[in-house]
Simulated assay, not measured.
Amino acid sequence: MLLSAEPASQSELFLYELTAARPTLYLTTVRSDQAVIDGIERTNTRTGDPNVRDVGGDAPLDKANRLIGTLPEGATLIIDVVDSLERYDRARFRRFLNELQTVMVNTGASRSSTG
């Protein structure tokens, strides 16, 4: 599933609600991990306790790949926002997507992203 919406919109609350369903890896590319955690804690909706990691800065595709490789079976992956990852070398981004697909299939995970 791909959810594309403006940051700080109602869709962000939806992403936060997704964290309640099962273990979640929440990768942020534009905000600090603490900013995401603070946003989750401020919501009035039911949320889980996601593993939030900031993959922005240097080598975000490499950081994201390493973290995605740790996804437990049946986990949810949220990438907020994916646009910043798409800006890197097209071949590297394509490899990232292929590796992501392999991990998702092997773990039975679901995925959501904004951007």
Rank of each mutant, 00 (worst) to 15 (best):
T24Y: 09
E73P: 01
T29M: 08
R53K: 15
R46L: 15
K63G: 01
V81M: 00
R31K: 14
L27C: 06
V52M: 05
D49R: 13
A91C: 00
D38E: 14
V55N: 05
L67D: 08
T29N: 08
Y88V: 02
L61M: 07
R87I: 06
N44Y: 11
R92G: 04
R66I: 10
T24E: 08
Y88P: 00
T29A: 02
L97R: 13
Q34D: 14
V81E: 13
E73S: 07
T76I: 14
T70S: 12
G48M: 13
A35W: 04
A59K: 05
I37E: 15
L85K: 06
R95S: 13
V81W: 04
N51A: 07
G74T: 02
D83Q: 13
T29Q: 04
G56C: 06
D58R: 12
G56F: 10
R31C: 05
L85M: 12
R53Q: 15
L97P: 00
Y26I: 10
D38Y: 02
P72R: 03
N65H: 03
T76F: 03
G48K: 10
L97M: 15
D89H: 11
V82Y: 03
E73T: 10
D54M: 03
D49T: 15
A59Q: 05
E73Y: 04
P72C: 06
A75I: 02
T47R: 05
N98P: 00
V55I: 02
R46Q: 14
I40Y: 05
D83I: 04
Y88E: 11
R42C: 09
R92E: 15
D38V: 09
R95T: 14
L67H: 04
R87S: 07
I40K: 10
